[in-house]
């Protein structure tokens, strides 16, 4: 009755197809079956934000989804975003600003930042804090994380203005 179901999805650009027990959360599936241990589980009830991943373009808790629900979806984890350099500037900014200590919340923080900064404009510090409202960090006190995200937002905005000018001038 609760036999494994064959599920196909795209994870970090690769097609994955395998039998999954329906009760396996997406988080456990990514961590245990696919060995993508960059996704962490801190509460298994959608409160801490350590397990955030991108599912079909939106950042969601992988602990609040069963892997079978993700059948047919496109999923990206911190490993995937790292490999395609989608968050390289965020990672650099976190590193330089020391916006992590134990690092356990960090992949989730990066997911939130990735999502927030995919929208145009420079978010205010309050908007950054609001976006982080579901990401728990016990080590940093959050300010360094807010700083790092703000720095990247400014840099990206400056780069996009420069590019617009360049295009206009060309």
């Amino acid at each position: 009755m609760s036999e494994p179901i064959n599920v196909s999805m795209t994870v970090n650009g690769s097609r994955v197809s395998c039998g999954v027990e329906p009760r396996s959360t997406l988080a456990d599936f990514l961590r245990q079956t696919l060995a993508l241990t960059g996704t962490h589980t801190g509460c298994e009830m959608g409160v801490c934000g350590a397990c955030l991943v991108v599912v079909d373009g939106r950042v969601v808790h992988s602990c609040l989804m069963f892997a079978v629900q993700a059948g047919g979806s496109v999923i990206e984890t911190v490993e995937g975003l790292t490999e395609r350099a989608a968050i390289a500037d965020l990672q650099d900014a976190f590193h330089l600003r020391n916006a992590l200590q134990c690092g356990f919340c960090t992949p989730g923080m990066l997911m939130t930042a990735y999502s927030l900064l995919s929208q145009p404009g420079i978010p205010t510090r309050d908007e950054i804090r609001d976006a982080l409202s579901g990401n728990y960090c016990r080590c940093t006190g959050y300010e360094a994380i807010v700083d790092a995200i703000e720095n990247v937002a400014r840099d990206r905005d400056a780069a996009s203005i420069a590019q617009t000018r360049e295009e206009a001038g060309a």
Partner: peptide, 26 residues
Amino acid sequence: YVAGGQSLVPALALRLQAPQLLIDIA
């Protein structure tokens, strides 16, 4: 039934609810 599951999945994880069948209407 499960749609987004944001309330149901924690209840299942805590074994507060344990349906035999989950019907995904999403």
